[in-house]
Amino acid sequence: MDDLLERGAVPEGYSVEIFDGEVIMTPQSQEQDLTVALTRYAVWQTAIGRHRAFSDLLVRFPGENDAAPDLTILAEGAERRGNSYHCDEVLAVLEVPSRPNDDKDYVRNVAKYARFGIDLYLIADPFKKLCTLMTEPHATGYAKVKEIPYGEPLTLTLSTGERIEVDTSTFPVRD
Rank of each mutant, 00 (worst) to 15 (best):
D3C: 05
L4V: 12
R7D: 11
G8A: 09
P11L: 14
Y14N: 15
S15M: 12
S15V: 15
E17W: 09
E17T: 08
D20N: 15
G21T: 13
E22G: 14
E22N: 14
I24R: 12
Q28Y: 10
Q30P: 01
Q32L: 06
D33A: 07
T35A: 05
V36D: 01
V36F: 04
R40P: 00
Y41F: 09
W44M: 13
W44A: 08
A47M: 10
R50E: 06
H51R: 15
S55E: 08
L58R: 14
V59E: 05
G63V: 15
N65V: 05
A67N: 10
D70T: 03
L71G: 05
T72P: 02
T72G: 07
T72D: 02
L74M: 14
E76W: 04
G77N: 12
A78F: 04
N83A: 03
N83C: 04
S84G: 13
C87H: 03
V90H: 00
L91H: 03
L91S: 02
V93C: 08
E95H: 01
S98Q: 15
N101R: 13
D102R: 04
K104I: 14
Y113K: 01
A114E: 00
R115Q: 14
R115V: 09
G117V: 02
I118A: 00
D119W: 00
I123A: 07
I123C: 01
F127P: 01
K128R: 15
M134L: 10
M134G: 01
T135R: 01
T135P: 00
T135H: 00
E136N: 12
A139C: 14
K144Q: 09
I148P: 02
P149E: 09
P149Y: 10
E152T: 11
P153N: 11
P153C: 06
L154M: 11
L154K: 00
T155H: 06
L156R: 01
T157A: 07
L158V: 09
L158E: 04
R163N: 02
T168Y: 07
T170N: 06
F171R: 03
P172M: 05
